[in-house]
Design a protein around this nucleic acid. Structure first.
Lengths: 190, 190
DNA sequence: GAATTAAATAGATAGTTATCTAATTGATTA
DNA sequence: TAATCAATTAGATAACTATCTATTTAATTC
């Protein structure tokens, strides 16, 4: 059974509910007992307990006509593990985030419909987006002469010297020390 | 620097902010980049980042006229530790809970102004509150004869036999196997 | 079966907050 | 110095929610 992070945090993001968790950490308690201890009316406590139960943090057991609520230690532990893993957070809630949205916006601002560069962005961050875009025309591992490099870059912008220099200074395009050839390294990772 | 639990959970109890944490777990990002990725306006993202920063979860560094935000891993780790300790929760947020409120309510319902028992509560839970109240007249470790026990209990209610029997059956008053004496054990713990 | 009691549900309200647009600030570039 | 750009602040609004009272449900006791 997996803990959903958002309901979990929402359940704990309230002073009354945190107190309930604290009280239940010591002993099982009924709705009425909790209500007296917290100085709240029973329906309010019922409401909070429903939210906590939904998040898997507490469970109820009928006893007489009392509902005795107890803390689910396991849920706390699982959540703590998720917090520490970082991957837990990344995987958990990021279904619909658009990692490339910013780059796409920059590209649409600085490229023509045909994919040529209109002007070089003044800001480094945006210029880098353009450089990464240009970089895709090079095959990883293949050696190119300077003439070939200029030819490829020319399809994006006449100032091939600037493009070439910036690519190299960022380390994204490597240059043989005698200047005879250029290449893009083979990518690693997933 | 201690993480406050309530602001911490409140900070994470929002889908947009959880996504921000997830994105910053991978890399530092500017407000504008986050806004594009999340499809929100920059002021909204600023607002969320302020809340996260308040809780100690992110920090900003000025870079050009960008504010680059990065995740504070340490805060996540500290919070995870608090979650696991249980004592973390108990200590953190329970300043103003009234642990004895329920017992007090029951006592005021079933005791006379002079501290005698009006009637025996029908429900076990409440009867136990009364028994714990009565139990205080016995000194821990002292031996009492049955006559002495009845004398002490008589000040609360004429039916001393019921009180005595219930105290013993709960294990709160011990009885010598030959019935010659009774005693309350010495308490342990804080 | 009638009376009692705890819990849950329904409905209302006041307080909080996530989001937006518009205006301001602060820093950079020309 | 003027123009540009990202971030923040201010103000407004719609959505959410913590809490209450009143009612209903479910279980227990007499």
């Amino acid at each position: 059974m997996t803990v959903e992070l958002l309901p979990f945090f929402k359940a704990l993001a309230d002073a009354s509910r945190l107190k309930i968790i604290g009280l239940l950490a010591g002993q099982s308690l009924s709705v009425e007992q909790l209500a007296d201890m917290l100085d709240l009316r029973p329906p309010t406590v019922s409401h909070h307990l429903a939210i906590l139960a939904q998040a898997g943090l507490v469970s109820a057991r009928a006893e007489g006509y009392y509902s005795m609520y107890r803390l689910e230690q396991g849920a706390l532990e699982e959540a703590a593990r998720l917090l520490l893993s970082t991957e837990g957070i990344r995987g958990a809630v990021m279904a619909d985030v658009d990692l490339e949205a910013y780059d796409r916006k920059v590209l649409s601002n600085f490229l023509t419909a045909e994919g040529r560069i209109k002007t070089f962005p003044g800001q480094l961050k945006k210029f880098e987006v353009i450089l990464r875009y240009v970089l895709k025309v090079f095959e990883p591992g293949v050696r190119y002469s300077e003439r070939q490099v200029n030819e490829l870059l020319g399809q994006f912008h006449p100032d091939t010297a600037t493009l070439r220099r910036e690519l190299v200074s960022h380390g994204w395009l490597k240059r043989q020390s005698d200047g005879s050839s250029y290449w893009k390294e083979i990518e690693e990772g997933t």
